[in-house]
Nucleic acid binder design. Structure first.
Lengths: 224, 224
DNA sequence: GAGTCAATGATTTTCGAAAATCTATTGGAT
DNA sequence: ATCCAATAGATTTTCGAAAATCATTGACTC
């Protein structure tokens, strides 16, 4: 074999990761065209797995296909940000409500643990406090996943996951960490407390507000 | 060129249609393995476009991929039917609520027209009244699409569309047209009336009940 | 001068075969 | 008899090149 990657099973999977990361970090900006030649250079493989990766990315909304004319990075818009946010408020709000109602001890433990890991490190970098730390973002995502993990609906979880990936592109847009105008710590703590207090509707409402604030903050970056 | 298909742009698209249809009609049953050799025979093309079609179908939940071990048709389960139904009630209910609130004259016209086309033909076949007519199913789907078409949220519409495709697999399971235990005509008329009366919450509630009844009916086929 | 059409170049899409991986079987050792 | 390793067969996955399609350019007609 040419190379044995640790966990990665197929080249198509590697290509998927590589291209998605390149889009995440802005190496390929919104609207930018994605030529196979360039992607083959980036991924170091033939056209076949690259094409499969693009098919998947397109299904998830990261890229757009114009038949016989090629792929390009999906554009971002203020309207879509609002749309995605509304959908998240609906779906993840309900998922959280169900999760709080159905969650058992293990769920509580997962939520507490995830919150602890997130609260344990600062949101911004030490050298550049205005830029989010990669690991904080990961733990932040894990906390939100833990919150809804007991909802009992694989379908809802999948929808929430995809919406979260979409929203992530907008989240990354914000160079600044929202300034001091917002108490992110407090918002998360409130989520945690209401969840543990089994206040299903309250937790769902807090989550919707949480996402609403995030969207409102990000919306500023479209007017710059 | 070898052949010029009317509207079809790529072979991958044709493969997607062909395989999905084969799954819909039961040519490939739930859990059945999908070998590339068989699919190439079915579609009459090389492995590349078939693979792309499977990638798409997998993203939409029709098929399942076990890396290096091949694709197979996704299994159906009573649990998933309930799960999908709940998600539809949530998402499409909200979409309908928004649509009724925001819809303009053109939307009203679309809804009335779609309902008329659906009500114009019988649900079951003349020769085999227990089997649904293909064209009725198509018009039924078009009516539901028209109902939510004014919700203003592309994201929500996409989610509803995908859930509808999933649910379609279960809908097709039912050999019988639900017997006389149900007034499908009436349910749809109620949806139409509440929508036109701009009773947003009422329409949404009627839709949720509509899907609830459909699911309850289909659930019987798992106990046979 | 505007518009149509054919030729050219760039790019996507598809093919057929090679490479990699998994599954089942056989043979042998404990 | 059971378990493990090596082999063979079947299948997926990837490659490199050919075919098909789209965009551009320039000539030609009206």
């Amino acid at each position: 074999m040419t190379q044995k990657r640790d966990g990665a099973g197929t080249r198509a999977g590697d290509a998927y990761d590589a291209i998605r990361q390149a889009i995440r970090t802005g190496d390929f900006g919104p609207g930018e065209r994605l030529r196979f030649s360039a992607l083959q250079d980036l991924c170091g493989m033939s056209v076949t797995p690259v094409r499969e990766a693009l098919t998947r990315l397109t299904a998830e909304g990261f890229t757009v296909l114009d038949e016989h004319r090629g792929y390009s990075v999906a554009r971002l818009s203020l309207a879509e940000l609002g749309d995605i946010t509304a959908a998240r408020q609906l779906c993840e709000g309900e998922a959280l409500r169900l999760s709080v109602m159905k969650g058992d001890e293990d769920w509580e433990a997962r939520v507490v643990a995830a919150h602890h890991l997130m609260a344990r490190i600062p949101q911004g970098r030490e050298d550049m406090p205005s830029v989010m730390r990669e690991d904080w973002e990961a733990r932040h995502g894990a906390f939100h996943v833990a919150l809804i993990s007991a909802c009992g609906s694989p379908t809802l979880l999948e929808i929430c996951g995809k919406l979260s990936l979409q929203a992530d592109r907008y989240r990354r847009m914000s160079v600044s960490v929202s300034g001091a105008a917002r108490d992110v710590l407090g918002e998360h703590r409130e989520l945690l407390e209401r969840a543990l207090a089994r206040d299903a509707d309250g937790a769902a409402e807090a989550l919707r507000e949480h996402y609403g604030r995030t969207a409102a903050m990000l919306a500023n970056f479209f007017e710059t």
